[in-house]
Design a binder for these strands. Structure first.
Length: 209
DNA sequence: ACATTAAGTGATT
DNA sequence: AATCACTTAATGT
């Protein structure tokens, strides 16, 4: 059953020997929406492969203000943990389950081993670094160049993609936290979007049209 | 019925 | 775009 899940996610990338190894050493963990998977400052000896669901990766400043950077989706891995893991550094980001998810944890030693034994693994790691860097750049662009109203709309549409639903069960307050702004600002801009017929507002609920 | 939480709004910086 | 100060609306106990 675990094997099927790994196969369906990775059979196009990994040779069957590697998939067998992944199934052998991987520890499957089912997490619920809003579960904390990895906190800032935490050490880790395992690497997560996302089999299903989505993980929100966020940063935090000295005052405890948070800002979400990007999401990990199925087939993704948190590559930041590769580098830091090998140097036994502490995590610089936080990972929270955005929805119910299945995560396969791989022990760090295996990763090093596979880097040598499996070409497909090397390629996977490099590619994953690449996509993560792209997402990072996108996050920077968003923060640096986009105004709050654009950022808000992007956030909503991103979330629709992640949740695979146009109905978002969230509050203005929660959105404000993700974007590191105030609730009042979010409320006003949402109202504007509603007037533009882009969304519909309810209590604890937003429908993106 | 009352308290709590979410959301709407004008005014000010 | 943020903050204050207040109102209104929805929901839980």
């Amino acid at each position: 059953m675990l094997k099927e899940k790994v196969t369906s996610n990775f059979s196009h990338i990994f040779e069957s020997d590697l998939i067998d190894e992944i199934v052998q050493v991987g520890i499957l963990k089912k997490v619920k929406e809003n579960d904390l998977l990895l906190d800032i400052g935490q050490k880790f000896d395992k690497i997560p492969l996302v089999l299903s669901g989505a993980i929100k990766i966020s940063r935090e400043d000295e005052n405890g203000d948070e800002i979400s950077l990007y999401f990990l989706e199925q087939g993704d891995t948190c590559n930041i943990t590769f580098g830091s893991g090998l140097n036994s550094e502490k995590s610089k980001v936080r990972g929270i389950a955005e929805r119910d998810s299945e995560i396969l944890f791989i022990p760090l030693e295996k990763l090093e081993e596979w880097m040598i034994t499996y070409k497909s693994w090397r390629i996977f790691v490099i590619k994953s670094y690449n996509t993560r860097l792209s997402e990072m750049l996108e996050a920077i662009d968003t923060l640096a160049f986009m105004k709050m109203d654009q950022r808000l709309y992007k956030h909503l549409t991103d979330k629709v993609k992640i949740m695979q639903s146009t109905i978002l069960n969230t509050t203005h307050e929660q959105i404000a936290l993700d974007l590191n702004t105030s609730r009042v600002v979010v409320s006003r801009l949402l109202k504007k979007l509603e007037n533009e017929q882009k969304i519909k507002l309810f209590r604890n609920k937003i429908e993106v049209l």
